[in-house]
Design a protein around this nucleic acid. Sequence first.
DNA 1: GGGCGGCATTGATACCGATCAATCAGCCAG
DNA 2: CTGGCTGATTGATCGGTATCAATGCCGCCC
Lengths: 224, 224
Amino acid sequence: MYVTIPTQPSANADVTPLRNAHTIPAEARLKAGSYLYFEGDSVVWLYQVITGVLRLTRMLEDGRRQVISFGYPGDIVGFPSDGLHHTDCDVLVTARLQPYRRSNLECGDGDPELHQKLLQAALREISAMQDHFMMLGRKSAIEKVASFICVLSDRVGRDCGAYRHVELPMSRTDIADFLGLTTETVSRTFTQLRKSKIIAIDNIHTVIILRPTALLALSLGDRE
Amino acid sequence: MYVTIPTQPSANADVTPLRNAHTIPAEARLKAGSYLYFEGDSVVWLYQVITGVLRLTRMLEDGRRQVISFGYPGDIVGFPSDGLHHTDCDVLVTARLQPYRRSNLECGDGDPELHQKLLQAALREISAMQDHFMMLGRKSAIEKVASFICVLSDRVGRDCGAYRHVELPMSRTDIADFLGLTTETVSRTFTQLRKSKIIAIDNIHTVIILRPTALLALSLGDRE
DNA sequence: GGGCGGCATTGATACCGATCAATCAGCCAG
DNA sequence: CTGGCTGATTGATCGGTATCAATGCCGCCC
């Protein structure tokens, strides 16, 4: 999941694997805290997230970290470059994953339809990352955080009574490293949104969107 | 071209098209200032840059701009997402381009070898963009500019006497929109590098690298 | 040659977000 | 329940980059 330019709210439907029938390997289940792969590992499998949440990260020698993306249901992670993984990937929320062989992406011989689906997923990934560039390079802290909540609301928000609830399983540090901010700034920005009654914070991992229109406006850079 | 983590200096050799033989369309030549495609256009061709420089940009409604990448010799531009272009692309330096049909990327029927090459290029693109995230999200102005010059030096620098020359055909505004800075900051950073005798500025579009090691150190965030 | 226009540089200042530091809250172990 | 640990929040301050403004540079056209 990247922070892309908001369009119309998306469906937020259940994810069905690309091939429900005889996809070679069975679904995998991974507990929170476990790792799927590390930077430098050679790629054997790609994974489509069915349920749960993954975290893809990259580190600099001096300790600076970038969260590249979060893997939400429907997302496919693990695209190889020169046959290798270029991020670490671990599990934030216990996940069910559909593995696909790297060979299904890289050559269409076995299953042309699956090959096509994986290729299209890679191409959509490029486009989504381009949008994310705009966010990292050009948006202010409040725009970043508002955009982040908006995207998650569309992807995994749930209507509870009058308001939409969004789970944030990741830490404030993860959000900061994803958006190119510090934890303190993320925290302050949440507080600011809470005080202006645009969101409420039910518990540290759940925000309730009180004024979705105002939140969307902030994400687009409208001056309040 | 993205600003990736510097590794060993790369070859900087001439680019040969993926298929020199019967690649269906002949090489195209495009003058500086002309556009290859616009955001929203449906994708018919991908282009490999043989010579010259392209610029890929994306705009927000309020005028904020992000330069997504520069297309340098060897780069392939125009990857579709849902069949559409998601950036504008125009020519900075008159270019020779090798076009490939979108169908050669999306289905391998016609030319499996070309299909494979285009697919691998798309996958490398994803990896390079991940590196670029780190740059946009976590690096300071001086690290960004130093990294930018280092990458261009590896890609298209030329040794002239004792020093390496790097052409910067794009404007300061382009560099700023690429690195997530303002023109003023880019300009000041160049001045700072010049005053500390790490680079010299021959003319506005040519920098001479006087102390490559110092430049590389700055790009990695060493406190000189 | 002279003037104009666009881009780059430089300067002064403002402000956003980082940094450093001090609680605070939740959670687990004993 | 209590103490300690970890992550979040809040506060005070600093600094880097943006912003606003003036000037400089250079190419181009009349």
